[in-house]
Design a protein around this nucleic acid. Sequence first.
DNA 1: ATAAATGCAAAGGGTTTGCAAAGGC
DNA 2: GCCTTTGCAAACCCTTTGCATTTAT
Lengths: 164, 164
Amino acid sequence: MDGHPVARPDDARAAVERFSRYLREHGLPVTGQRLAIAEVALGAERHLSAEEIAVETRARGHGVGTATVYRTIDVLLRSGLLVERDFGEGFRRFEPARDVPHHEHLLCTVCGRVVEFRDERLERMTTLAAEARGYARQSHRLVIYGVCEGCQRTGRGRGGPALR
Amino acid sequence: MDGHPVARPDDARAAVERFSRYLREHGLPVTGQRLAIAEVALGAERHLSAEEIAVETRARGHGVGTATVYRTIDVLLRSGLLVERDFGEGFRRFEPARDVPHHEHLLCTVCGRVVEFRDERLERMTTLAAEARGYARQSHRLVIYGVCEGCQRTGRGRGGPALR
DNA sequence: ATAAATGCAAAGGGTTTGCAAAGGC
DNA sequence: GCCTTTGCAAACCCTTTGCATTTAT
């Protein structure tokens, strides 16, 4: 909403360090662009889109082409340090892979704020639901759409939820 | 997988009838294309994509442009007779809105088979999870990815799940 | 020196839009 | 006849790709 997704500079630095190591260990060139993009993507505290990562990286003084951003995101995903999310907006968002194993997302349909939470019982239920129907569960994706506390108070117009 | 998504001709006919009424009641022209598209979309027993709807409509002898298909889908969605789904494939799928209030989706990552099921306890949990974090729940979206019974037996290669 | 990454621009898939022609009402 | 829909093609958004150039190793 307001602007700049930075924060946890220590975590971010450590994550970029790990990415650097990943690149070296895999014989991949460690370039300035890759590190700059990784610093933004892995240091983000919001769920950023590819373009937001590009814009922020450039805002920090590192000229990067769009293709490079996407290609670096691919590498970051393969490294496991970044994970992708799909909130049904028509494009992907990315978040640093913290040690958190799996979590659900709660999305405010007014301001876009995203809250994450973990619920093992809910997770177990998805496994049971799958098994009850003969499926071997692999993963699941849950997004709950609603209006956050702040937006309920200000009572601004509600942009209907995307897809069910 | 095999091919033709038709079935429940009675339900389909009734649904098209309702769509027809919707158009009339809203002063919208009842055109041949709209009815042809509605017949396919509302009669489908699989979750069809926009293009699949277009192809099937043409296969039944009704020439329709792509734009018309999308525009008619919009009208169908607004009428409430059709609902859209997003399984993270990069495009939307549609299904006739039966009387079923809400249901979850279980998707086989090998053959694409979709099973629907209802689980009120799970639904209640999403409401509680939202409220616990100060959110007023509006809706949710859950897709469980796994391998269906048949594909487990034949043990064919598994196309990894799309996005978490 | 070599193999890979970069940037640009063009292509790609799904979807939307502008506009003249066709068709309900 | 008026106003909406249709169809085509172009535009659109997000993402990927081809290719000549730059760069890390």
